[in-house]
Design a protein around this nucleic acid. Sequence first.
DNA 1: CGTCCCCTTGAGCAGAATCAAGCCTAGTGG
DNA 2: CCACTAGGCTTGATTCTGCTCAAGGGGACG
Lengths: 251, 251
Amino acid sequence: MIAAASTPRKPKIPCRECRHRSGVGFKDLLPRQLDFMNAFKESHEVAWAGEIIIRQGQPSRLLCTLYSGLAVKYRTLSTGKRQVLTVVMPGDLIGLESVYTDLPSHSIEALTDITYCVFSPSKWKELLSVPDLADRVCELQVLEQRHIEDRFASVAACSARRSVAHFIIELYDRLRRRRLARGHSFSLPLTNQQFADAVGLTTVHLHRILRGLREDGIFTHEHRQLVIHDLERLRELACAPSPLDEIRPLI
Amino acid sequence: MIAAASTPRKPKIPCRECRHRSGVGFKDLLPRQLDFMNAFKESHEVAWAGEIIIRQGQPSRLLCTLYSGLAVKYRTLSTGKRQVLTVVMPGDLIGLESVYTDLPSHSIEALTDITYCVFSPSKWKELLSVPDLADRVCELQVLEQRHIEDRFASVAACSARRSVAHFIIELYDRLRRRRLARGHSFSLPLTNQQFADAVGLTTVHLHRILRGLREDGIFTHEHRQLVIHDLERLRELACAPSPLDEIRPLI
DNA sequence: CGTCCCCTTGAGCAGAATCAAGCCTAGTGG
DNA sequence: CCACTAGGCTTGATTCTGCTCAAGGGGACG
């Protein structure tokens, strides 16, 4: 991981770099929609692992789609505790809030080096006037909403072991759909602290839960790699049914 | 409360009954938008307290806006546990999921007798093509999203006492904005079981938390009425800052 | 080589769940 | 009109899950 402090020069990436991807789990766009999307795009940016691209409570106009890498979306409570709301993956829309409010309710921090496709918030209303594009946005938000409801239910109503299992299977399913998992393993560059903040546990207790799951041969998490050893038991442990999360629309 | 079993005849309510409300915390619609909304409307329905208008996992095409009364939106996990996701209030959109998927991921149960304004899911795409209406939908979803993220963070990262406080203050703020609170009290027709399912506790423990809050003179919940005795301390206890939840758009 | 950060482990404690029983109220039927 | 019943509220006793505190270990970086 490159420390943000060292700040190597960031490469200028031409905007056409950011293509709409076919065959990686996203709905295709019609030519007309693609044209508009390209006009709507402003630039393609890079952030290094550890950088915070949106800060909770600090004015931001950033509206973008993550193109590569992983990030976390989290909230800091007035008690000082953090809650990771979700792990942001390529294709996820970031900062839609900024179209409607000035102060973001959460922060976004890059987990790995990331690239993202920046849009103009002021053109958002134009985008919504393109046939079918508004519909895609709406569908995206419905899926997003269901996703966080899933997480909420799992953390609030299940044991620590179960909600950890749910968190992992949910990451696995989302990554696999984007062709970002190799077999039954994937890269998960979370510290134990971030992991714990995602499932509402302390690092100490999380560590014990993870050890238990490792000893039971369900999965292991070492060197930022997560390897699932017994997918069936993992799925059974996670209270949610296998999510048939459809092909996502991409903005 | 009238038992659903006795099934008194439901009154036929003319569709014009359902007007868009000014001055009760909703954004006004332009005449053109109002015209479309009226065309989009199909009927105005009634459900008695206890009725379930959407069942998780059972095909539903219901898309509506709650007009009067209260409902709960909840999910049943495969372990048998329930998680109340939110309390649905007048002006909230229900069943947008049905436009994009066949099987609802949650159930909606009426807490009181309710009336709701039914829309045609098949006309949804037309609605999104009306200038500004798509924008309103989008804003509504952004607010909705932030709301559940709030609840998630509060339940996952705070003590039981704190998340109960958060739940109450959040209900209070939302109801007050809709002019549904009288001074510092409001009607909250939840059983202890439903209340517990909302904050992820057992009824036994919730009861002890509520007793503590009552003895500390913060609020009381009796006869389906919630009375806040010390708003300042309640707000301070709930970890979230006073939510400056804007005026909501209404669909 | 030292420092810092994160992971790991143990011991003890507290918050929340479970189990079990009594009570109160509203609705039901004789 | 009153006894009966069921569901939900209240409470106590006990168990266990998860938190706090504290200390040791290991790797990356300066």
